[in-house]
Simulated assay, not measured.
Amino acid sequence: MTRVAVLTPDPADPSFAGQWPGVLERLATALSEAGITAEAAPWIDHVEDASGLTGYPLVLPLLAWGYHRDHPRWLLGCKTWAAAGVRMLNPPSVIGWNSDKSYLGRLADKGVPIPETLWVESMVQGDADAAFDRFGTDTIIVKPRVSGGAWKTLRVSRGEALTDAPDGPSMIQPYLPSIETEGETSLLFFGGALSHAVNKRPVTGEFRIQVQYGGKYQALAEPPAGAMALARQTLAAIDEDLLYARIDMARGPDGGWLLMEAELIEPDFYLGSAPEGGARFAEAVKARL
């Protein structure tokens, strides 16, 4: 069996303790069937010294949850791993820039359609108030540029006071009603090839589609019309050596697809909804080994 390391959360962080072991187990099971043993390695333990990772033929940052809460150390870790020559996929350079959602602006500059976005350095009430008129909407989404799992993500209505606003660099987007009616669609790519597509919908009254907020996931027989074109356009604009990618998208007001996220660090592959994707991921890993 070939040993690979999977970066995992800080074991001292109780907020993830009930979820990540199950995700790791699904990944480990899929990899083991391809002759690969997955070994957990808390990412926080290797930030300043990569020697604990250099012995692995491959390191997968698939469960490095919590980096958004300690972003400076995450960036330091990415720098350390790159300098030490850790064979990590996706590469340290990619998981560094992908941790700040300002990358969406750079993709938009390359022609990838994203929701209208207002970038602010420090969120205040005036920024939110101005966004309603700028976007011509009565509901906006406010979130930090460095976030994960809808952390500090708010849905704000016109006239509503902005409370618990994110600290530091943030982003504002118009709320997309299609999230509630059609949900968000994710396309999973392993080794550059489409593996599976999953539709994610929030429960009634909610706008966040993550499982911790009750989100419901369903595998799709094939991507909706137009979704694959946006995914391919996004991957071409990224133009990086990627082992895996999850391209999240939703429909805009005109019915066209908009890129919500390109998850290249620790995306949930939704193997609980699409278990066949595990074997495809394992084959992609095996090909790299």
Rank of each mutant, 00 (worst) to 15 (best):
A221P: 08
I238R: 13
Y244N: 15
F135H: 12
E160P: 06
G52T: 11
A34N: 05
R201W: 01
D129H: 09
M249W: 02
G85A: 04
Y213P: 04
T204E: 15
T37I: 12
G96Q: 09
D70G: 02
P169E: 11
E283P: 02
A225Y: 00
G149Q: 09
P223I: 04
F16L: 04
E184I: 00
L75K: 08
P113G: 03
S186Q: 08
Y217R: 12
S122H: 13
S170N: 08
L259G: 12
L107N: 08
P202W: 03
K101I: 09
V198M: 00
Q218W: 09
E276V: 11
P275E: 02
F281A: 02
T234V: 11
V203I: 15
Y217G: 04
G277P: 13
A41I: 06
T2P: 00
P224D: 04
W74D: 11
M1I: 10
I265P: 01
G278M: 12
L53Q: 09
A38C: 03
D241I: 01
L24A: 14
R73V: 06
R26G: 11
P42S: 01
A30D: 00
K79E: 12
R251H: 13
I44Q: 13
S157I: 05
Y217V: 14
A221L: 09
I114C: 12
S32L: 13
T80Y: 05
L271S: 08
A40E: 12
A130D: 14
T37A: 15
D248C: 13
R201A: 13
R158L: 04
E25I: 05
E33I: 02
S147V: 10
A108V: 12
E180T: 14
Q212A: 14
G192S: 00
E48C: 06
Y244W: 09
L76P: 00
A221Y: 07
L258V: 06
E263K: 04
R232M: 07
P21G: 09
S15E: 12
I179S: 07
P224H: 02
P92E: 10
T234K: 08
E266R: 06
V198N: 08
G272I: 00
L258S: 04
L24S: 10
A250G: 00
V156E: 09
A83G: 03
W20A: 13
E276Y: 14
Y175N: 05
D268G: 00
A279P: 00
L62G: 06
R134M: 12
